[in-house]
Design a protein around this nucleic acid. Sequence first.
DNA 1: AACCCGTGGAG
DNA 2: TCTCCAAGGGT
Length: 330
Amino acid sequence: MTDWFLDCGRELPWRTDAPRDPYRVLVSELMLQQTQVATVIDYYQRWMVRFPDFATLAAASESDVLHAWQGLGYYSRARNLHAAARVVIDKMGGVFPQEIEQIRSLPGVGPYTAAAIATFAFDQPTPPVDGNIIRVTARLCDYRKPVDTAAGGHDLRSIAQQWQPSLEEGGAGMLNEALMELGALICTPRAPRCSACPVRLFCQVQEPETLPIKRPPPKTVELDEHCGWIVHQGRVLLEQQTGKRWRGMWKLPLLTEPHSGEPLAALRYPFTNHRVNLAVFPATTPLFLAENQQWIPLEQLETIAITAPHRRALNQLIAQQGLTTGSTLD
DNA sequence: AACCCGTGGAG
DNA sequence: TCTCCAAGGGT
């Protein structure tokens, strides 16, 4: 396994240091939660320039943190990472803990991420059971029961634990990285490349593409979202989200009253288990602004954190109306 | 346990 | 276009 990893493993920005810096591991693992490697690489490199260590991140403002995370999604990860840096600086004296229970106590760090930091940064025999290791393990053992249940998770963690070398032997970190890399490059969800697999002789799977077995996902729900396009003297009216979803991010102002006629722009975007039909209508300048609303000069749009769908809508509208922002938006 | 939280790549 | 789903965590 580790021989294969040394030959075929990818060189990724968060794998360049040895031993690994816990801060770099934490940032990369939070970014990689439910997010593909190809998407994370640019964000990670920009992040490390902007917030190179715990102290810099702890001292940053939330709006700066959200702006650096803009477009990655699952924004609570950014707030949790920010909070975790403040815990490390303020409550741990700037020293990152090696005990997995203490690592686990940091905001945004669950069972997977705690195990990942412990094994990658400190070479502890704590298998980080993510989607890759779930898939690799289920196939290697031909595990045909649902994996996304308490019992299934317990079984897989138990199996992966048995593969771990002791702390004294060492090498757990590389073994676990190799298992994850195997899931990413060879033992893929669809069309696995079994003929190139370094452990094919040990694999018991009958039909790899049928594993792992998961419960059916919730049905998608259709939603309509009507927003207003209000521009005045080179500034556009935006509002900052206050609820749970997209909290702290800027977007076009929501129209509460039903709107008829042709929208200026329309686009559809997926959101968790929803599919949202966003329509933007021309609207009139309100007499009073809500507390979370603000006029944003067009040339400042790239300096604030805007949700991905609303940024697409804004780009459409600006191009369509021949407006200029002084520079190119993301 | 079930539900919520974003986004973009790949087939 | 549509569906799946990717290095999960919080509640």
